[in-house]
């Protein structure tokens, strides 16, 4: 199996008022295709920063990051957008659906930024995904008409629409109750079993248990890296 994510000696500094803040201190990490990784750690450990860098939303200060064996460390802003658009899917803690769009339209958003024509085929794909996450009967609802769990399921469908190499989830169950959390995690596990690579940030141990591999960060370094299975 090949690495889908490979980071070598990753450093990240933030500059606050002329003072450098060393957030990630020389991380080395490889993630295999089809893995399900939970990133854990206390606040300030750098797990969110790491997820942002993995999601090509933030840039590393030093080191190297290869996604699907392509070095994305020094890509220009437009190229990074292209990478996000083609190879990455995002799931957020607060769902981040667009309030003025319906369920189907929200699922469709990532396709707007690919150079493809929206036609009947893409439409069918969006409908199939909505069906898959169990919202086939609420296609024309707006986000405010849906419960938190339903919104997060729309977000999952949206993260799948561009058939990404990696799904990045930032505390996907952080705003949900236990029962709904289980539903969402079941869905993510199914996706993983179907072959999707998932990287998830969480601070809850029982959520991390759903993952195959748990990586704990502390003060910008990897504290532990344990496989669950």
């Amino acid at each position: 199996m090949s690495y889908i994510v490979r980071i070598v000696d990753l450093h990240k500094y933030y500059y606050l008022g002329g003072e450098a803040l060393h957030v990630l201190k020389g991380l080395n990490l490889e993630i295999f295709e089809g893995d399900f990784v939970a990133l854990m750690g206390p606040s300030g450990s750098g797990k969110s920063t790491l997820l942002n860098i993995l999601g090509c939303l933030d840039r590393l200060s030093d080191g190297k990051y290869e996604l699907s064996e392509v070095d994305v460390s020094h890509m220009a802003d437009d190229e990074l957008s292209e990478v996000r658009s083609r190879y990455l899917g995002f799931i957020f803690q607060s769902y981040n659906l667009l309030p003025q769009y319906t369920v189907v339209e929200n699922i469709e958003v990532p396709l707007l930024y690919q150079n493809i024509k929206l036609n009947e085929i893409t439409k069918q794909r969006c409908l199939a995904l909505a069906d898959m996450v169990g919202l086939g009967s609420r296609l024309d609802h707006r986000p405010f008409q849906l419960s938190g769990g339903q919104q997060q399921r729309v977000a999952i469908a949206r993260a799948l629409v561009n058939d990404p190499h990696v799904i990045l989830a930032d505390e996907p169950t952080g705003n949900l109750d236990t029962k709904t959390s289980v539903e969402i995690m079941t869905m993510l596990r199914k996706l993983n079993q179907a072959g999707k690579t998932i990287i998830m940030v969480t601070h809850e141990n029982d959520i991390a248990e759903w993952a195959r591999r748990v990586i704990r960060l502390r003060d910008g370094v990897i504290e532990s890296d344990i496989r669950n299975d």
């Binding site: 999601g55 939303l57 802003d77 957008s81 292209e82 996000r84 658009s85 995002f90 707007l112 930024y113």
Partner: peptide, 16 residues
Amino acid sequence: TREIGIRRALGAKRRD
């Protein structure tokens, strides 16, 4: 602003 962030995360380029 948040909508802009979401769109950027989902692959929108600056010119989009």
